[in-house]
Write a protein that binds this DNA or RNA. Structure first.
Lengths: 349, 349
DNA sequence: ATTTTATTTGCATACGTATGCAAAAGGAAT
DNA sequence: ATTCCTTTTGCATACGTATGCAAATAAAAT
């Protein structure tokens, strides 16, 4: 009677064990044993273009299916010294422009058998850490979306032969990274001319961040175009590329009831839309007539009837395609690609 | 003299090597050699809580810095049989609800030293492939956002001891996955009661997908609540959880000028906002008065003045926290978590 | 000074796959 | 039948790290 109890305990434990963390996935050796071949053959059966006879491959695949075998990508990457993974450092979830770009990247990468290892960085300070860790993963490329990388880490990437792409940002350092942006100068100039052509005089600019190349380039070209026409430098506020920041910036710009701007160029659409809503809700200003509002990006929301935002487009799909082409080595020597967009005039200006 | 030349050639070659594609990153062995210790010691110096004296660790870290050494995570994961990576399968980039959730996941994971391997799946058919590949990466968990997994693959994950979380979806199969959702039934019921309390009679429902548990649950509860009050089953259209689909669905529901609904419940906010805009732009209907519109999620956009959408909230941060807690093993035996939200009444209904 | 105990260290091996190399097998050509 | 060429196959090793184990060292207790 007592023995019986002991046996039950034993059984119980072994059942537990097979369910427990110690479960071992089948390896290429297991498959090889079952199929009566060598481990090398199994490896070749799962490697496109490897030298193996069709019938043997078939036999191996059958054995693999039976065991539920699946090659361990970590082991493969360890040998090959590189993984089919691209590191993406992402900052701005709030902005649909980047969400869309991430979506496009995912799709383009998938078509090339690449995966995305996603890192998020709220501050530029953390970007370096993230990229450093990406190196440990032997990623085959790094994409920085709307964040800046220190030249120290850019150099480290270069040393490890890992291409770095800055998406929608540029860098002063030469050869630190491949950059792909929209045409910030042309876009800002087009917006400025449009404002001037429609008789705007009291013009304001809402920046993103002061340390963002994108915002600085748009600002510089915008200011220059206005100066060319003899206008004074526009009033200016910083919206931090966020809705919340843009609302505050709008309040600041329009606080003085006696001297409100009659045109506002925001460094991106997200902020421009926030400005439009704030003007309507808090100042009773309907954008388009009394005050023109323009953005940058042409995110899908810009065309929604509620906003009908005049903006300069950044062709996300093209930009992503250029970045991916660079990573795939399908491109020349150029280090900075500028993808042209176009002025899209809607009701807001 | 000649020896000297040879030495220079040697130097030259090694310099060349370090620049060329075949550049080899320093390994733990290199660091060990430089620091005069064993490779094991290097490994221990980089492993928290490992047995190593403080001064030796210091010496090793110094040598590592000098060489630019960084542990190869692939090798580590290979030995340990698991990587600090969580696979996320993501479908809906268009919907800010999921973008926000992804952001929260990224942050919670980062705090626990976990990384995200991102897969996108436009169709449910591809989800199985993606998850299968995730298994090859020895991820420590799988998160499915707004997609369904076949029970076959769920079983395979279970066999490999990889926890699976379905975010904002449920499954009929027992123990196939941990599911975390908002309170679809309570939410839909609350919306229905709100419609009834405000005297709505010709009520319509816009579904997401027919095979989405979320949409089905909301629909069932909504229909049941209306039936309880003796109303006929609402008119119904499918919006595919997309803006485009929702616009078409709205047109279909309001096509007959003689018999337009006076209330519309959309399975999520994204569609509800599209409906609001379509009603305004194409039917001259201002939501709130002539026709009530309600959504589900309470995405940030719902509170924007342009929409002021009545909705039932899904607390993203809580939902994500529950999912992460499950993965981290900080939770009990429950298989399905329902996080309550609340009815948020704004101007649209 | 000696024993006991705790801590640190290196050795050796394992993780699961890819791949250079040489042997074997299969075909083609003579 | 023999040679030659092509394809297939297995052996052995390497990738870079973690870890059990025993030896060595340090610290504590007697």
């Amino acid at each position: 009677m007592q023995l019986r109890v002991v046996v039950m305990l034993e059984t119980d434990r072994s059942l537990f064990m097979s369910d427990a963390p110690s479960f071992r996935n089948p390896t290429a050796h297991d498959v090889a044993r079952l199929a009566g071949v060598s481990q090398s053959a199994v490896s070749r059966a799962f490697t496109a273009g490897a030298s193996i006879s069709p019938d043997k491959r078939e036999k191996i695949i059958a054995a693999a299916d039976q065991l539920g075998y699946r090659p361990n990508i970590l082991a493969r990457s360890l040998i090959q010294g590189t993984s089919k993974v691209v590191g993406v450092v992402f900052g701005q979830f709030e902005n649909p422009f980047f969400a869309h770009a991430l979506d496009r990247f995912a799709e383009e990468f998938a078509a090339r058998g690449l995966r995305i290892l996603l890192f998020t960085a709220k501050t530029n300070a953390t970007v370096d850490e993230q990229v450093a860790e990406l190196l440990s993963y032997k990623v085959s490329a790094v994409i920085l979306m709307a964040v800046n990388l220190s030249s120290k880490l850019a150099a480290e990437c270069a040393r490890s032969n890992i291409p770095v792409v800055m998406f929608n940002r540029t860098t002063e350092e030469d050869h630190a990274a491949f950059t792909v942006t929209g045409d910030n100068a042309a876009g800002a100039t087009a917006i400025a001319r449009h404002f001037l052509a429609t008789g705007r005089k009291r013009i304001a600019y809402m920046a993103g961040y002061d340390d963002s190349s994108t915002s600085r380039q748009r600002e510089a070209a915008f200011f220059a175009a206005l100066a060319d026409s003899g206008l004074p430098p526009p009033r200016r506020a910083i919206g931090h590329y966020s809705r919340h920041g843009a609302i505050e910036a709008t309040r600041a710009l329009f606080a003085s009831a006696s001297d409100q701007p009659d045109a506002l160029f925001c460094a991106n659409d997200l902020m421009a839309i926030a400005a439009i809503e704030t003007l309507r809700a808090e100042f009773g200003i309907e954008p388009g007539a009394q005050c023109a509002v323009a953005g940058f990006d042409d995110i899908p929301m810009a065309s929604w009837p509620s906003f009908s935002l005049t903006t300069y487009s950044q062709p996300v799909a093209d930009m992503v395609a250029r970045a991916v082409a660079f990573i795939a080595g399908e491109t020349g020597e150029e280090q900075a690609v500028v993808v042209p967009g176009k002025l899209i005039v809607r009701n807001s200006a």
